[in-house]
Design a protein around this nucleic acid. Structure first.
Lengths: 213, 213
DNA sequence: TAGATTGTTAATCGATTAACAATC
DNA sequence: TAGATTGTTAATCGATTAACAATC
């Protein structure tokens, strides 16, 4: 793969811009300057300019950027226009919540199958997505040509499930389990690190606050 | 506040070490070298050493680190030993999932009250946590001396709720809504950016994959 | 035109990686 | 002792911020 020319921090900021732009668009605003965005989002204005430039969007000197253009640029850059089929393994609390999350559709990720180990969940639909037994994982993803896997299972089962996913043809994984998955190099893995945020939060609390106890 | 001497990337990595150490501890391992950790986690060994040093933990040359010591150091460093009371606003899919999340207890965050705008949820308990009407937010957090607020509500209501929280005495917020909250400077805000991870995932897909469509 | 804004090139800052001394 | 490991100091790398030219 070609290494991305776009820094990861930039990618992380793009959704921030996206949601901000959606909001002001909803308020009827059609033009926005990078200066204003920077101020509202608490980011340096040069940073905002570089990030927006990375998506290929261009503004007009003295005028600013068209909100609709920026939104379109971000969507295109992140490839949110073309859709992929995904499955989710682990229909527990977090998994069920994700099945009902509206953001994926927008991002072109269509969850068409869920899997769970508990017989009580199998056969039902959660937010419209059918739940299969987890031992049918390989068979179903192969049959439905699913290429994306979302892991919302406990850490101790994640590695095994990842291996079955690879067997079945999954090419990319979005992993919510707090474990470093060991998969072939050509498989994409993106880890959602909820605990990373919790650690930063905890540290801020212990640094600043005396209001614990 | 004093700026943290510990880099944010280090804080983000600490839970990774923590979960790794918990796992090998569960397998009966008592000693671990930074070299081995680095290899298993795909992180540079010097990085691991610096991160562990930041928590105040020390190893023995030629021997390694005691797993139990490392775990204790991380817990202490993140102040996971002392507990704080927190409330959660927005008992929807994500909110309910968080109420059932075992990680908070471990991190010393005890959710004692939840709030929701839907009358159907009010008065019930979700994972043992009572749900109050959201218009009682200020009153309840004041009465229960709650200092931490978790926001799992739609973006368009987050700013208003944040302001009520500040009114009621909340000093720190863990925000899951995709919006930059505007609160007084002395209020701690940590944003969980699920969409940041999704953006990185989407970009990886569009860079590497031809398996969309 | 004047001035606000864009967008680029240079300087700074901070994190990661490399080199190496210290220790059991 | 020899060698593996720790932990620190220096070098590199990359992102952020500053300075400035270009544009309408």
């Amino acid at each position: 793969m070609a290494a991305s020319a776009v820094p990861t921090p930039t990618l992380r900021r793009l959704p921030k811009y996206y949601h901000y732009l959606k909001r002001i668009q909803g308020e009827g605003q059609e033009i926005i300057s990078a200066t204003q965005m920077a101020e509202d989002l608490g980011i340096h204005h040069t940073q905002v300019r570089k990030d927006l430039a990375a998506t290929g969007s261009q503004g007009k000197p003295k005028v600013g950027h068209r909100v609709a253009d920026l939104l379109a640029s971000i969507e295109t850059f992140l490839n949110w226009n073309s859709a992929s089929d995904a499955c989710l393994v682990g229909a527990g609390n977090l998994g069920s919540a994700l099945l009902g999350y509206p953001g994926f559709d927008k991002a072109g990720i269509r969850i068409t199958a869920a899997f769970d180990a508990h017989p009580s969940k199998v056969g039902k639909k959660i937010h419209g997505v059918p739940v299969y037994p987890v031992d049918k994982l390989e068979e179903v993803i192969r049959r439905l040509h699913i290429t994306i896997g979302i892991l919302t299972i406990p850490a101790d089962r994640a590695q095994h499930v990842a291996e079955v996913m690879v067997q079945g043809g999954i090419r990319a994984m979005w992993n919510f389990a707090p474990i470093t998955l060991d998969v072939p190099e050509d498989i994409i893995v993106e880890n959602v690190e909820l605990y990373a945020s919790l650690a930063i939060f905890s540290r801020k609390l212990s640094e600043r606050g005396t209001f614990r106890g």
